[in-house]
Design a protein around this nucleic acid. Structure first.
Lengths: 144, 144
DNA sequence: GTATGTGCAAATCATTTGCATTCTC
DNA sequence: GAGAATGCAAATGATTTGCACATAC
């Protein structure tokens, strides 16, 4: 399996854009963990490693990462998006507690079938989906 | 079936809050159409009808409307949330074109079953879900 | 060499907050 | 009458943009 950087290089070349060390640094940092990330947190991670990457560079890169299929928006919380990397990992859905914000990831294989159905019905080229289920977790349920 | 205002009055009373003409005006305007809405657009609709409602009043009301189950976040687009009313209407899912932004609504009954399954597995009190499927619409597909 | 990418500082835009006033209960 | 809600103006915070400089192709 190709690694993320190679996927990105290919994508960039196909679009006639340019690759830079900054972009590769950002991508490596994103894929250095298996966690979700958001722009600010990623920026701080890079800063801690003494990498001189500006926030605008991250913001400018994100749309390309989305378009290339390396990452996906996971959910919007605390006023900003959280992303997950989907290349090389299975995409997952999120179960969120409305009170404490706790998030549990789960899989739902049946959605693949649904995507196929929608693709046929509406003649779309489906690229993915985002499912968020919300409610109250065991701890918070009693205190609603 | 009780109307939205009554649901809201009951909710407000239970929480020990106060109802106001401003709040009722906003709620009536939200439910005056069957469409989605966002805060800014709602504010302008009210303004056009010569209602003197400030944006902060809308922003301060939204969390209560969410909590009372009258509305739900539908999707985040153009830098802000779009809401849908769910009381008295079936909740629906969204199919979005990544290129032109076109949005198609569809139903997916199987998600009810999934909610039940999750409720059992994680001991959550499930209140709802949000599903967004994305891809390219028939018109945009050829131009990716 | 040219056009793209970068970092910085400033601008934007949705949302939130402080506060004096008004209103609901 | 006390505590909430409102409107206004100002603050906040994520994201975007203008611009001069650097650099990939």
């Amino acid at each position: 399996m190709k690694d993320e950087i190679e996927i990105f290089r290919e994508f960039i070349r196909k679009k006639g854009l340019r690759n830079t060390p900054e972009r590769e640094t950002i991508i490596k940092e994103i894929f250095a963990t298996h966690d979700h990330f958001d722009v600010d947190e990623l920026y701080l991670r890079l800063k801690n490693k003494k990498k001189k990457i500006s926030k605008p560079s991250i913001y400018r890169l994100v749309p390309y990462l989305l378009e290339s299929g390396l990452i996906q928006e996971a959910y919007f919380e605390d006023g900003h998006f959280h992303y997950e990397h989907i290349y090389g990992h299975e995409h997952h859905c999120h179960l969120r507690c409305l009170k404490c914000g706790k998030i549990i990831e789960f899989e739902e294989k049946s959605l693949k079938k649904m995507e196929k159905k929608l693709a046929g019905k509406y003649d779309f080229a489906i690229k993915g989906h985002k499912l968020e289920v919300f409610g109250y977790c065991p701890k918070c349920k009693p205190h609603i």
